[in-house]
């Protein structure tokens, strides 16, 4: 009898105006095989406790806003099925390595800053007139970066990465993968500008290739691989600058 089955959710609760410390609150939720953790949290908010605060939007793994720690693992809650945890209780916490705003909601500000730091847009020295048409790209050129363009900014990789946890200057998996995505784009000419940022001491070199970012990524972006490639590219740039210091024939990204 499906109606009688329930499952326990333990939610991380923190309301800054009343709580000085976070606490956990348990809720009994009807168990449905087809439900995901997000459905259960929505049910709690709708029928039991309207004060529970969490982010979500698409319910289909596209928007990247429903990331939380589910039993200690960073997960998209809209893709984490209850049946994978039943009959045991499920502990839901906000993503680690981020400041907590309220309940399951974290502060994304620092993450957004890091995304901007890598200049995630196409940079050109010469901008063609619209009448000249698009910048063409072959399928082989597209293949070079396509994987790294699939990121949905869910930040799961930041919660899986220990270096993000203890090094503030580290730009983190998603931002570095995004920078690499543009560095590998045949239409882009901003490599050296972007590497300028990535070459800073811990910005990229803080990565010790733990590799868990790639394991938890729901979009198979493989940030760990992207960062290793970016390091190799950065090292090349470093030696290039060493041999040919800036100014001497630098045509790219010299002006700011």
């Amino acid at each position: 009898m499906a109606e009688t089955k329930t499952i326990t959710l333990e939610l991380f609760r923190y309301h800054p105006e009343t709580d000085s410390e976070p606490r956990f609150q348990s809720y009994e939720v009807p168990y449905d095989e087809d439900w995901v953790v997000l459905d259960a949290i929505n049910w709690i908010k709708d029928y039991v406790d309207g004060s529970v605060t969490h982010r979500w939007s698409c319910r289909m793994g596209v928007c990247g806003s429903c990331g939380m720690m589910v039993n200690g693992e960073p997960k998209l809650t809209c893709a984490a099925f209850l049946k994978n945890y039943y009959p045991f209780p499920i502990k839901v916490e906000p993503l680690v390595n981020f400041p907590v705003e309220r309940d399951l909601v974290v502060d994304m500000e620092g993450f957004m800053d890091k995304l901007q730091d890598v200049k995630p847009y196409i940079i050109r020295d010469d901008v063609n007139d619209t009448s000249e048409g698009e910048y063409l790209q072959t399928p082989a050129e597209l293949a070079q970066y396509k994987q790294y363009s699939m990121c949905i900014n869910c930040m799961l990789c930041y919660s899986a990465c220990p270096v993000v946890g203890h090094e503030d200057d580290f730009l983190g998996p998603a931002a570095l993968a995004l920078g690499h995505r543009y560095n590998k784009d045949s239409r882009d000419q901003g490599q050296s500008e972007r590497l300028e940022v990535m070459l800073r001491s811990e910005a990229m070199w803080g990565c010790t290739f733990v590799g868990e970012c790639t394991v938890v990524c729901p979009k198979h972006v493989d940030p760990a691989g992207a960062i290793q490639q970016a390091k190799a590219m950065g090292a090349q740039e470093y030696f290039k600058r060493f041999v040919m210091p800036k100014g001497a024939g630098a045509t790219k990204g010299a002006g700011a």
Partner: peptide
């Protein structure tokens, strides 16, 4: 503008 560090050298 930021100063690139020597980390690249040690990493290589």
């Amino acid at each position: 503008p930021t100063r690139p560090s020597g980390e690249a050298f040690w990493w290589a």
